[in-house]
């Protein structure tokens, strides 16, 4: 079964969506990601969608679900790299993407996540940063 790889970057998880997600793949990703957040105690999830050319209401719902579930597990979600055309389309579609942080790229996404985590909290995780 096809799977989208989840990378660990210190206290954060990084998912890069390379293909346009079809439903089953997206639902698998949702399950995998939540499982991994729980297992690793990750404090943040970065979802890189710079290669994604459309986000419809289904995909928007998946992103929202991931953010919502992660938050319950005390992790923040940042969607990074959204293309301008996709952003304009989402606004017109009326999709709120509530509870999701956004950033221009992975680097800025990490900055954003670091800012949301109290410093002493992060220190304990520092030893496996960038492993």
């Amino acid at each position: 079964m096809e799977k989208i790889p989840i990378l660990r970057m210190g206290p954060f998880l990084l998912v890069t969506i390379q293909v346009d997600l079809y439903d089953r793949l997206a639902l698998n990703l949702e399950a995998d990601l939540i499982e991994t957040v729980h297992k690793t105690g990750a404090r943040g999830v970065l979802i890189d969608i710079s290669a994604v050319s459309i986000v419809d209401s289904f995909m928007g719902r998946i992103l929202g679900n991931i953010a919502g579930m992660s938050r319950i597990l005390d992790a923040q979600t940042v969607v990074v790299g959204m293309q301008p055309a996709v952003a304009i389309t989402l606004i017109e579609l009326g999709l709120p993407l509530k509870g999701i942080h956004t950033a221009l790229n992975v680097e800025k996404g990490i900055e954003k996540l670091r800012a949301t985590i109290p410093p002493d909290d992060e220190e304990t995780d520092d030893d496996y940063y960038f492993q």
């Binding site: 050319s53 459309i54 986000v55 293309q83």
Partner: peptide, 10 residues
């Protein structure tokens, strides 16, 4: 293009 594809997807 993106708007049309998104509408089509819906």
């Amino acid at each position: 293009q993106t708007k049309l594809m998104t509408a089509a997807s819906e």
